[in-house]
Design a protein around this nucleic acid. Structure first.
Length: 478
RNA sequence: GGCCCGUUGGUGAAACGGUUAACACACCUGCCUUUCACGCAGGCAUUCACGGGUUCGAACCCCGUACGGGUCACCA
């Protein structure tokens, strides 16, 4: 049997880390197995669909490097690929269930259902808060209900059924039908619910494996009863662990501490290859020592037996590390391209040459974590007010340091051309003149000109900073 | 509350009953470069939530406890 998997987002929001992980694992599995990866849009929630949601999902999937084999934009033999375009298909299957007596019409209003839930939830030993009133109604009672006209269709959950499936991640998982209430398959607006449409589509599109988030695990018995009602084969499920934040809570879209949308990372100057790599590690491990793995390598290594069982924590540190690694591999031109939009919007490039910009990004190449950070690094380095920290001030206060600085300043002031080579020579000459060397020579020069004990290559940095600024800073410190 | 699930170092995360519990990040040390960083070489868990059990042998199997999470919608 050929492998066919799908990523089925609802256009209710932009591409989120969790969505991306789901898409990525389905994709990696398909590519690893030589199967097809399908993109289907689950747009059955009219209220929550947002403008641009679908587009964002697709744009940023592509940005990450995830391409699909079938969907409404690239074609395929199993369309339509948007659920709202498949309403007549669902209708047919709902009618079939109704005819077979496996589903029934429910006329209850949402207020009635709510009140019912309220009342029934007092029973602590029951998790079904639904009375089956419409299923059991007869005679005058039934006529009265039917007179309301508007109805939804509910699945008649069979009694005494056991739903067991062998989950790739969790192993054997079992649910009892007693724990599932009669759920709605067709909403009163004529649109099917997720759990129903999903099954019809997965079957019709011949989906073989379903990788999805753990929050769907309790949906599985519901979906299984639909497969059974029609006598269809059930695909293989893999419920991936939740991605949690540093507090151990499920990554919620309302979570302020963690940046969760792929678009935001793209805008901040994270590299798609790095994001692809990082996300692949969220709930899966490659089984080898390296963690920096490119697209082809991940496709090659992806093995469902290595999917993690415990929740994976979104480790911001790790993301930074991985992105830094990919940035290090960039050429100067690529690095400049990555930083350019941020430099431009911060106004840093005004009146500067292309060479200057190139030297600037090269200077920070090794310590840049993401594109936009170039602005922070620049600001920190070039800002007018330079304040010394405690440690720096203490270093400067040491015996003999001011002589070194004076000598350094004089050397610099006498420089015709303010180049890295000239500055390098000035440091050397100042050291000789003041009798300072090693750390006692370099540190004062660094601190007096940059305000910090750490930083990029000093001569190059100072050349970029410019003579006036550098000399001015030294004078101020002296 | 019912039903599902998880619990390994400061952090992320391996190990699928059998040596001193991988690896990575962070941190520390050394080397290197007359500074810093980068890079390289090392160091860092009296131990796998807790209590029982099974076994010659358990982080890995079973039972219980605690803690954490998911889910119980005409949302997906």
């Amino acid at each position: 049997m050929s492998v066919r998997v799908r990523y089925a987002p609802s256009p209710t929001g932009f591409l989120h880390i969790g969505n991306a992980r789901t898409a990525l694992y389905n994709y990696l599995f398909a590519k690893n197995q030589g199967g097809e990866f399908i993109l289907r849009i689950e747009d059955t929630d009219l209220e929550r669909n947002v403008e641009g949601g679908e587009e964002s999902q697709m744009n940023f999937l592509r940005w990450l490097g995830i391409e699909w084999d079938e969907s409404f934009d690239v074609g395929g033999d199993y369309g339509p690929y948007r659920q709202l375009e498949r309403l007549d298909i669902y209708k047919k299957y709902v009618d079939e269930l109704l005819e077979k007596g496996l589903a029934y019409k429910c006329y209850c209003t949402s207020e009635e259902l709510e009140a019912e839930r309220e009342a029934l939830s007092d029973n602590k030993f029951d998790n079904i808060h639904y009375s089956r009133r419409c299923m059991n109604a007869t005679g005058a009672d039934l006529s009265e209900l039917e007179a309301r006209g508007e109805y939804s269709v509910r699945m008649k959950v069979p009694a005494g059924e056991t739903y067991t499936f062998n989950d790739i991640v969790r192993g054997e998982v079992t649910f009892q039908s007693e724990d599932v209430g009669d759920w709605v398959i067709l909403k009163s607006n004529g649109i099917p619910t997720y759990n129903f449409a999903c099954v019809i589509d997965d079957h019709l599109m011949e989906i073989s494996h379903i990788f999805r988030g753990e929050e769907h695990i309790t949906n599985t018995p519901k979906q299984m009863m639909v497969y059974r009602a029609f006598g269809w084969d059930i695909p293989t499920f893999a419920h991936m662990t939740l991605i949690v934040n540093e507090q151990g809570k499920k990554l919620s879209k309302r979570d302020k501490d963690t940046i969760q949308f792929i678009e935001q990372y793209a805008n901040m100057g994270y590299l798609p290859e790095a994001m692809f790599n990082f996300i692949s590690l969220l709930g899966w491990s490659p089984g080898i020592e390296e963690e920096i793995l490119d697209h082809d390598r991940l496709v090659e290594l992806f093995d469902v037996n290595r999917l993690s069982k415990s929740p994976s924590t979104f480790d911001k540190n790790k993301l930074t590390f991985i992105n830094e690694r990919y940035i290090k591999d960039l050429s100067t031109e690529e690095l400049l391209e990555l930083c350019m939009p941020h430099l431009v919007s911060a106004g840093i490039l005004e009146g500067q040459t292309h060479e200057w910009a190139t030297e600037l990004v090269t200077l920070f190449h090794d310590r840049l974590s993401y594109g936009a950070e170039i602005v922070d690094l620049y600001d920190e380095f070039f800002s007018d007010e330079m304040e010394l920290g405690e440690e720096e001030a203490a270093f400067i206060a040491q015996e003999g340091v001011s002589d070194t600085l004076k000598a350094f300043k004089d050397e610099l002031a006498g420089l015709d051309e303010f180049t890295a080579e000239g500055i390098q020579a000035s440091i050397k000459a100042a050291g000789k003149k003041a009798g300072a060397k090693g750390k006692m020579l370099f540190m004062p020069c660094r601190i007096a000109t940059t305000g910090q004990m750490h930083g990029p290559d000093l001569p190059k940095a100072l050349a970029l900073l410019g003579k006036d600024t550098v000399v001015g800073r030294i004078e101020k410190v002296i």
